[in-house]
């Protein structure tokens, strides 16, 4: 018989059970398969009731994040051969409420993301009229924020963050990194507005620089670095305001 591998999958169907359970599935082992392929196999061939999110299958959409043997991974980038012949435990992302099986409720994350106004903000009246063309940017200016802009909102960093696990009020890695992405953008003028959220108590200050977010990030966004930079610049702001209150930025 062809080789197989065992997947143990977190199941939770609120209409039929009050507590989550684990269910085991035996799937064919294929060297080229990723965990998502195995889950798709289960859904198509063994048990159509399994619910989970995925879309691109190529590490771009950010929707297939799950806990694989306790580590937050994009299941489309986690190869079965990394685990074979051990069995693989698949659970929903840590830190978020579970809606059903492997599907988590992302509302909390979306609210955090929206709170940092993740778009380019121009001062009133300083918006360039369309006919004047685009805002030009040098390669150096692009390099300032480019790696932050690679974030695919997969939330792996939240699932890895022990601070977020203890206090979900924490704004968290990706939202701060994305805030920084716009703050560092030469075309943007919205930093002061974002600081209201980022420099607040629940913004950057819960972070104790554990660094797990940067370890698990599949896109090398380095949210931990973004948070450190935000701490430094917020501290500079704070002392500037303290020493030179007349120079207060509006």
């Amino acid at each position: 018989m062809a080789q197989t591998i065992e997947l143990e999958i977190f199941r939770y169907r609120p209409e039929q059970e009050s507590e989550p359970t684990l269910q085991s599935y035996e799937v064919p082992y294929n060297e080229e398969w990723v965990v998502l392929d195995a889950i798709n196999y289960i859904k198509d061939e063994i048990d159509g009731t399994l619910s989970y999110r995925w879309s691109c299958r190529m590490g771009v959409c950010g929707s297939c994040g799950m806990m694989v043997n306790g580590v937050p991974r994009l299941t489309c980038a986690a190869f079965l051969k990394e685990y074979y012949p051990r069995k693989i435990l698949v659970e929903p992302l840590d830190g978020f409420p579970v809606e059903r099986d492997l599907v988590t409720d992302m509302d909390m994350f979306v609210a955090k993301l929206t709170s940092v106004s993740p778009w380019i903000i121009r001062n009133e009246g300083e918006e360039k009229p369309l006919e004047e063309g685009t805002y030009l940017q040098s390669p150096g200016e692009l390099a300032e924020y480019k790696h932050y802009s690679m974030c695919i909102n997969c939330m792996l960093c939240y699932a890895a963050c022990p601070v977020f696990a203890l206090d979900t009020n924490f704004l968290g890695p990706a939202a701060i990194a994305i805030g920084q992405r716009y703050n560092m953008d030469s075309r943007d003028q919205g930093r002061d507005q974002r600081q209201e959220v980022i420099a607040s108590h629940d913004g950057i200050w819960h972070c104790t620089l554990v660094g797990e977010c940067s370890t698990v990030c599949p896109k090398d966004v380095d949210p931990a670095g973004a948070i450190q930079r935000a701490k430094l610049s917020s501290t500079t702001d704070y002392f500037k305001d303290l020493l030179m209150p007349w120079g207060r930025r509006t």
């Binding site: 420099a199 607040s200 108590h201 701490k231 501290t235 704070y238 002392f239």
Partner: peptide, 14 residues
């Protein structure tokens, strides 16, 4: 949102 006094402690910490 309330302004945080954390910068004082964080800068001393750093």
């Amino acid at each position: 949102m309330a302004k945080s006094n954390e910068p004082i402690f964080w800068s001393l910490f750093s």
